[in-house]
Nucleic acid binder design. Structure first.
Length: 598
DNA sequence: TAGTTGTTGTCAGC
DNA sequence: GCTGACAACAACTA
């Protein structure tokens, strides 16, 4: 029996798990008599966050699984989902039951968290914050890198070396028991309707069943603080298409399956895993679980290390950082630490000192020169439409109908499953930015944000910068071909056939370039490659490529060279004031290459 | 200052 | 399946 009368509110956020949760461990170590694990769900979150149906369901599954796990440890327990913004509901709850301890986990303190912490302090509530999301505390990692953003793996390794000889903390076990929850029926906490929930703008309007928003009562529709259903948040169940499932139980099962395959763990080298593999994929599929905190990165690190150390002792070949699995986790930490060092500006070009400015098409409005070229008819977009062609390319890229099967297959897999292989992400990101469309990486990052179930801001933004050669990476002349790259990994075209089924019958000779197939063959294979995207009179159709790739590659390469010559970064004065475009206009045309003279 | 390295390019030629 | 040319950035080392 608990010896104290302590009430502990445990605020779950990025840690939808019971294993290896330092904050949960600390909270239970207080030996509370009452323990209330809550998820505070700001109704605005449903409308303001760019989240597609696949990630919504993943989140709800994670919450349901966690709730079940609590129930297993104590039949009275669950995850208490409170539908109100933490800034307003947490003080109410503290007051209602006189809670005297409050526990929390996260690494990256955002403005909202700061606000909550200050409120707690004001209310005399003891707050415990523990980092549980990364291998190393991002702030500490940045500090050990001289307070600067970590921009390379060698910097990360050096900084980590200074923290704990490069070794993350060992994972903690899941608790064996959980104290009783609150007697909430005595709390007189009515299931009040929320006032002031602004449902507009609704970033997910396309995925909703109706405009009728039910997501407005703090205890939920059943008056029980239960985990919301898709219906409650207004998402149509039929729009969920991912085969990937959420929850700590699923995450631990996935990890243990991978770990048992010692050859796989021992030989894992990311650049050698195929982006074209499906059923099964060539990588671990653990990333969404790291995002939702259903799987601890430290557990993965140490479980993998055990296998690697055993193999080393047996003198078996073993891959190493940065290409092996621990290396992948270090890259994740690199992006988190870079984000911690830069702050909120990390997510944009505007105001971000580490990101290079490139004269992309479809720049964010805050970068456009005075907004003068913003089309009034498209005024609700958050980017400037400087080129109708580029906007069409962007939309076709997003919808998977560029006419390049490798790109389209990847983009359709992204939309359907919420996940694509890392190298696939490279391929489509390069294509949208420096290797094809010359569209701002910020547009691409937004699409990934909506569609990826493993979307993690720091990693997504960081990788888009990497691929667009605006930060972390700069060899822009290494450009992915939408034809050769796919062919290299999948000469038979199995991947394209799965995700672009209209091309399934095409001979492998034309699978990556269907427009080159003779008309007679196109007819024979049941799909015409046509410029008319809506034409259905001829049966199945697939679009012609939206541009000449080789031509676009050259234009992009020249423009990138020019942008590097200009040498501006996101926090430079010219960028902040909107006068940066003059620097690009002076030369008019990028300098011509001299190679043809030789 | 020159040379090397950087998780993950392409293409021709053998 | 390998090699080198291609064109050529930035950080780091010697």
């Amino acid at each position: 029996m608990p010896s104290s009368s302590k009430v502990v509110l445990y605020w779950h956020r990025t840690d939808l798990r019971l294993h290896d949760s330092p904050a949960l461990h600390a909270a239970l170590a207080l030996n509370p008599s009452t323990f209330i694990p809550v998820w505070t769900w700001d109704p605005h979150y449903v409308y303001r966050s760019r989240v597609g149906p696949n990630r919504w369901r993943f989140l709800l599954e994670c919450q349901s699984d966690l709730s079940k796990s609590y129930k297993k440890l104590n039949a009275k327990q669950k995850l208490w989902v409170v539908r109100e913004a933490p800034q307003t509901v947490l003080p109410k709850l503290w007051e209602a039951w006189g809670g005297n301890a409050f526990s929390d986990t996260d690494s990256y303190a955002r403005a909202r968290d700061e606000e909550v912490l200050q409120l707690a302090e004001k209310a005399g509530v003891e707050v415990i914050v523990k980092m549980g999301r990364n291998l190393f505390d991002p702030d500490e990692l940045a500090a050990k890198n001289g307070g600067k953003a970590t921009m390379s793996m060698s910097q990360v390794e050096k900084a980590a070396e200074k923290i704990n000889s490069g070794q993350p903390e060992k994972p903690l076990d899941a608790p064996q028991s959980i104290p009783d929850p609150w007697d909430w029926e005595k709390m007189k906490l009515d299931n009040i309707k929320q006032d002031g929930v602004e449902a507009e703008p609704d970033l997910n309007a396309d995925h909703r069943t109706s405009k009728d928003k039910q997501y407005t009562a703090i205890m939920g529709p059943k008056n029980d603080f239960g985990v919301p259903t898709l219906e409650e948040i207004g998402i149509q169940a039929s729009t969920v298409t991912t085969p990937h499932r959420g929850g700590e139980t699923e995450a631990l099962k996935l990890l243990s399956t991978s770990i048992k395959n010692e050859e796989y763990i021992g030989h894992f080298e990311k650049p050698k895993t195929s982006p074209a593999d499906f059923e099964p994929q060539s990588t671990t599929l653990l990333s969404p679980h790291h995002h939702f905190g259903t799987l601890s990165v430290r557990k993965v690190w140490w479980d993998v290390q055990e296998v690697l150390q055993k193999r080393k002792a047996e003198k078996k070949p073993t891959s190493s950082i940065p290409t092996n699995l621990p290396g992948q986790l270090l890259f994740r930490d690199m992006y988190f630490a870079a984000q911690a060092a830069v702050g909120p500006a990390f997510s944009t070009t505007y105001g971000n000192p580490v990101v290079r400015l490139v004269d992309w098409h479809l720049q964010s409005k805050n970068l456009a020169d005075g907004g003068s070229d913003v089309d009034t008819e498209t005024g609700d977009r958050d980017y400037s439409v400087d080129s109708a062609d580029a906007e069409e390319w962007f939309i076709r890229w997003k919808e998977g109908r560029t006419g390049f099967p490798w790109i389209d297959a990847l983009m359709r897999q992204l939309r359907q499953e919420g996940w694509i292989h890392h190298l696939g992400r490279h391929s489509v990101a390069c294509f949208l930015t420096r290797g094809g469309c010359y569209v701002s990486w910020e547009r691409g990052a937004e699409v990934f944000e909506e569609l990826l179930i493993d979307h993690e801001t720091a990693c997504n933004i960081g990788n888009w910068m990497w691929l667009s050669c605006t930060a972390f990476f700069s060899q822009f002349y290494r450009c992915y071909s939408p034809i050769a790259f796919g062919k290299k990994w999948d000469p038979e075209g199995h991947f394209v056939r799965k995700y672009c089924p209209e091309l399934a019958q095409f001979d492998k000779k034309f699978i990556y370039e269907p427009w080159k197939a003779p008309i007679a063959d196109q007819k024979k294979w049941g799909c015409r490659v046509t410029g008319d995207r809506t034409g259905s009179s001829e049966g199945q159709t697939y679009p012609k490529p939206m541009f000449d790739f080789d031509q676009r590659r050259q234009i992009c390469l020249d423009s990138m060279k020019n942008a590097y010559d200009v040498g501006l970064h996101g926090a430079d004065e010219e960028v902040m004031t909107g006068s940066w475009r003059e620097k690009f206009d002076v030369d008019e045309k990028p300098p011509k290459r001299q190679k043809t003279e030789k």
